[in-house]
Design a protein around this nucleic acid. Structure first.
Lengths: 158, 158
DNA sequence: ATAACTGATACTATATTGATATCAATTAAA
DNA sequence: TTTAATTGATATCAATATAGTATCAGTTAT
C-alpha cells in the first residue's frame, strides 16, 4: 500500500523548491536536475499544478515557474487529491449498489472514520510547514539517521 | 487513492462469513455465491489466508474452509498487509539512498507519523469487532442510509 | 464409482503508474 | 533579428499492479 506515488512525491519536492525561492522563476530543467526528477514527467506535473492554481508560469527564455498560492495554504492532502485522486474505501463500491451487503456497510463505516483521520492528518501538513521543518533540519549538523550524501535543496544555487 | 483493493475487500467479507458460522466448513462456492465474489478469484484469496494461518481447509466433498484464528485476533491491518503489502511512504525510496535529499527526509518523517496513526486505526478494527457491529446492525430495523436491497450475510442460509 | 470439493498453477485482460518524445509558440538576450 | 532557452500541449510507450479466468490433479463423503 503506497501512500504517495511518484507524482505526488515529485510535486511536493518541486513545491518545496519553489516555496524556498520566492519571487523568481525556476525552470523545469533546474527543478528536475536539482531534485532528480525526470524532466518531461515533471513538466506534466507542473502544468497540472498551474491548472489547480498552485503555481504560475512564464514562457520563453528565463521563464519558469513560481508559487501562486502561499505555501501555508497548500496542504499535501490537496496534492494527494490532485495526483492520486480522492481517498476512497474501495472503488465506486457505493455508487453501484446502496448498501447491498450489510457487511460492506459496517466495514465502510469504520473505513470512512479512518479516512477522516487520515485526511485530517494530511491537511495539517502544508508545504509551508515542510519548508520550515526543512530549514530547521538544515540548521543542524546531522539530520536524518545516516550520513548526508548530498543536500540539493540547501547547497545548489539555481 | 484506494484504501482497500478488491482482494482485501473480498477477503474481509469471506472472513466475516466464516467468522459468523463457526465449527462448520463453508465451501468457496457458497462464499462466492453469497458474497458475490468471483469464484476462482476467491479461491486464490482463501489459499493465501491458509498460508497465513488465518483459516484451515478440508478437501473433498463437504469440504471447505473454517476459521483457524480467533476473529478478534485478526485486525484488518493484517489483511491489508497480506493483500496490499505493508503501508509505505513511496516505494523503496529509502533503501536506494539514505537521506540523499533532505526535503524527502523531512517529508518522510511526517508521513511515517501518519503511517503509524493509520496502522494503529486499522489494528483496532478486527474481524471480531466487525462481526459484532454487523450483528448489532442486523438487529435494527434500518441500518445504513438508504433502503436495504438485500442482506446476504443475514438472510441466506449456507 | 462419482460428484463435490480443494491444491496448485498458468494464463489473460485491464487499469494505473511512470516515463519519453515531439512540435509549436513565446521571450530574453546576443 | 536571429537564436537559444523555455513553456504549452499532446501523443506514445513501457512497466507494474489489479482483477479475473481456466485447467487439471488429488481428496473425500455418499
Amino acid at each position: 500500500m503506497k501512500v504517495l506515488t511518484k507524482k505526488t512525491d515529485y510535486a511536493i519536492r518541486a513545491l518545496l523548491m519553489l516555496g524556498s525561492k520566492r519571487g523568481v522563476y525556476l525552470s523545469a530543467k533546474a527543478i528536475a536536475t536539482d531534485q532528480d526528477i525526470p524532466y518531461q514527467f515533471l513538466r506534466g506535473l507542473l502544468q497540472e499544478m498551474i491548472r489547480h492554481e498552485l503555481i504560475v508560469s512564464k514562457e520563453g527564455a528565463q521563464g519558469g515557474f513560481m508559487m501562486k498560492k502561499e505555501p501555508d495554504e497548500i496542504p499535501i492532502a490537496q496534492l494527494i487529491e490532485i495526483f492520486q485522486g480522492k481517498v476512497q474505501v474501495s472503488e465506486c463500491m457505493f455508487r453501484k449498489q446502496i448498501c447491498a451487503n450489510r457487511s460492506r456497510c459496517v466495514l465502510r463505516h469504520e473505513i470512512m472514520r479512518i479516512e477522516q483521520v487520515v485526511n485530517h492528518e494530511f491537511d495539517k501538513i502544508t508545504i509551508g510547514k515542510l519548508i520550515r521543518d526543512l530549514d530547521a533540519a538544515n540548521g543542524m549538523t546531522q539530520g536524518c539517521g545516516e550520513k548526508v550524501v548530498h543536500n540539493s535543496l540547501e547547497s545548489t544555487a539555481v
